[in-house]
């Protein structure tokens, strides 16, 4: 009988392992282990054995059952896997197709503006807003630009009345801040400014500046250089360096133009930097003593620096936009690029 069982195991095993479908395997399982299956028959035949042989044989039969069940289960999982693979292989899609789920985008200038704000906020600067329609008092008088000063004419201001104008610089925001907040002051004021330039490849009558102001005890021009250098490295590239060139603004003294090493060629000279290796990005200086005292801040106690950068120009440099008008046109093909 043992032999018979052994033979049954072996034949069932080979049948099971060679079965080609789940159906065939299920049939085999019934054939061997079902109510009238071969092994079930043997189990039934045990009652004809002498009682002393029964337990040993019973054990053998049960072991046989477990073995058979195990390799049927093994084969079953193999077949199921094969069947799934076959099914999945028929579900191949063309992965080269792109489906358009529109993700909106900020205007590139605002992306740049946010990046600049992030930097200065991380250094403890507050962000301050001030009106776009301003008085001559804030836009000129308080910035040490008296009525007969040539700067008033140079800037080609849009006027609403003789005392109200479209601000020509975010510097007006410096004054409003200094009137309200007393030192220590660290603030930036990003915003839109206006000059009556006909729109061309490098000018638009509206553009955007980001103004910065620090007023505290013992602030020096080296601090200005430190902050702006760190800004340039954060904003452009860790290897970016800055250069100060003397300049003139009525509201700062000393005043400088600030150049950064060319972001395109790294300072070697290219057509972006016109071969100079540097690109002018902002104007800055130490806050003029008259401006401080005009705002009720004692210039013998406090010093400060201010800077103003053109965000449109910086955006254009970073993205290589060669026409200042395009960012104002709202062409979707432009907006999708960034």
């Amino acid at each position: 009988m043992e032999e018979k069982i052994h033979e049954l195991i072996e034949t069932t095993k080979s049948k099971a392992l060679s079965s080609q479908s789940i159906r065939e395997l299920t049939d085999l399982k019934v054939e061997i282990l079902g109510k009238s299956g071969a092994l079930t028959g043997i189990l039934r035949g045990l009652k004809d054995l002498s009682p002393d042989l029964r337990p040993a044989m019973g054990k053998i039969v049960n072991e046989a059952r477990e073995k058979i069940e195990a390799f049927i289960a093994l084969r079953l999982s193999e077949l199921e896997r094969e069947e799934l693979d076959k099914k999945l292989s028929k579900e191949r899609i063309d992965i080269s197709i792109d489906k358009n789920i529109p993700l909106g985008k900020l205007h590139p200038l605002n992306v740049i503006k946010r990046k600049a704000i992030d930097f200065f906020v991380s250094m403890g600067f507050m962000v301050s807003d001030s009106p776009e329609i301003e008085t001559t008092y804030y836009n000129f008088d308080m910035l040490n630009i008296p009525p007969d000063h040539p700067a008033r004419e140079l800037q080609d201001t849009f006027f609403i009345t003789d005392k109200i104008l479209l601000r020509t610089q975010t510097s007006a925001g410096q004054i409003r801040t200094m009137e309200k907040v007393k030192p220590p002051i660290k603030m930036i004021s990003p915003g839109r400014v206006f000059r009556s330039d006909e729109a061309d490849a490098t000018h638009t009558p509206c553009f955007h500046q980001l103004e910065g102001l620090v007023v505290d005890k013992g602030i020096t021009m080296c601090d200005l250089k430190g902050i702006l250098s760190s800004f340039a490295k954060h904003f452009f590239d860790k290897d970016t360096t800055i250069r100060f060139r003397p300049s003139y603004f009525p509201f700062t003294e000393p005043s400088v133009e600030v150049d950064v090493s060319c972001v395109h060629c790294g300072g070697k000279g290219c057509n972006v930097c016109k071969g100079t290796g540097f690109i002018e990005i902002l104007g800055a200086g130490m806050v003029n003593r008259r401006v401080l005292s005009g705002c009720g801040i004692d210039p013998d106690v406090y010093t400060g620096f201010a800077f103003g950068m053109g965000l449109d120009r910086i955006t254009a440099i970073i993205h290589g936009i060669n026409d200042a008008r395009v960012p104002f046109e709202g062409d979707v093909r432009f907006l999708k690029q960034f």
Partner: peptide, 23 residues
């Protein structure tokens, strides 16, 4: 100007920066 050092506001007070909730 190239002889100027880069310093990081060593004398300034610490200030709380940031945007207003409206901003």
């Amino acid at each position: 100007y190239d002889k100027m050092k880069e310093t990081f506001l060593p004398t300034a007070s610490v200030t709380v920066g940031g945007m207003t909730s409206s901003q």
